[in-house]
Every structure is written in C-alpha cells, then in structure tokens.
Amino acid sequence: FDIYVVTADYLPLGAEQDAITLREGQYVEVLDAAHPLRWLVRTKPTKSSPSRQGWVSPAYLDRRL
C-alpha cells in the first residue's frame, strides 16, 4: 500500500459515515483511492492506539516516497 502523511488535522463532519479523525504528521496507508473525494486509509498502530481504518479527504494527504 502507498504511504501518505497527513498535512493538517482532519476532523470529519458528523454526517460522514466511516470517517476517522487524523492528526497532522500522522502516517497512513491508502487502501482505496478509486473515489476522487474520499479515500479509504488505515492508520499505523502506536503503543497507545491500535490501527484504525476509515474514509478521509485526499486533500489532507501528501504522498511519501
């Protein structure tokens, strides 16, 4: 999967189903980028939180090589 970094805090609107909150600087794996406005991502697990999966706007993501 492609690795992206979150460029700004992402707080989903209440109406968005299956969306997750992301923090600036967080790394995520993009699982599904087929839709231009919503990408399915999975967060990297940390010592304090397990990995999470949900939909985010790709405008908040920047690809890492």
Rank of each mutant, 00 (worst) to 15 (best):
F1M: 09
D2Y: 14
D2F: 14
Y4F: 10
Y4E: 00
V5R: 12
V5W: 07
V6R: 00
T7I: 15
A8K: 15
A8S: 11
D9F: 04
D9Q: 05
D9T: 06
Y10L: 05
Y10C: 05
L11C: 13
L11S: 12
P12H: 06
P12S: 07
P12T: 08
L13V: 12
L13Q: 12
L13G: 13
G14M: 12
A15Q: 13
A15S: 15
A15H: 15
A15N: 15
A15W: 14
E16T: 08
Q17S: 13
I20R: 02
T21E: 14
T21Q: 12
L22M: 04
L22P: 00
L22W: 03
L22D: 00
L22R: 01
R23F: 14
R23C: 11
E24V: 15
E24Y: 12
E24R: 15
G25A: 02
G25N: 03
Q26D: 14
Y27N: 04
Y27E: 14
Y27I: 14
V28I: 05
V28A: 01
V28F: 02
E29S: 05
E29T: 08
V30F: 01
L31Y: 02
L31V: 07
L31R: 02
L31E: 01
L31C: 03
D32F: 08
D32P: 00
D32N: 11
A33N: 14
H35K: 05
P36Q: 07
P36F: 04
P36M: 06
L37D: 15
L37S: 11
R38F: 08
R38V: 05
R38P: 00
R38D: 01
R38E: 03
L40P: 00
V41R: 01
V41K: 01
V41I: 08
R42W: 02
R42S: 04
R42P: 00
T43H: 03
K44A: 12
P45F: 05
P45V: 06
P45S: 10
T46I: 05
S49D: 13
S49N: 11
S49P: 02
P50F: 05
P50V: 08
R52E: 12
R52M: 14
Q53A: 08
Q53W: 08
Q53Y: 11
Q53G: 03
G54P: 00
G54K: 01
G54F: 11
W55E: 01
P58C: 05
P58G: 02
P58V: 05
A59D: 12
Y60S: 04
Y60A: 05
Y60T: 03
L61D: 01
L61P: 00
L61W: 01
L61T: 00
R63K: 14
R63Q: 10
R63A: 09
R64S: 13
R64Q: 13
L65Y: 14
L65E: 14
L65H: 12
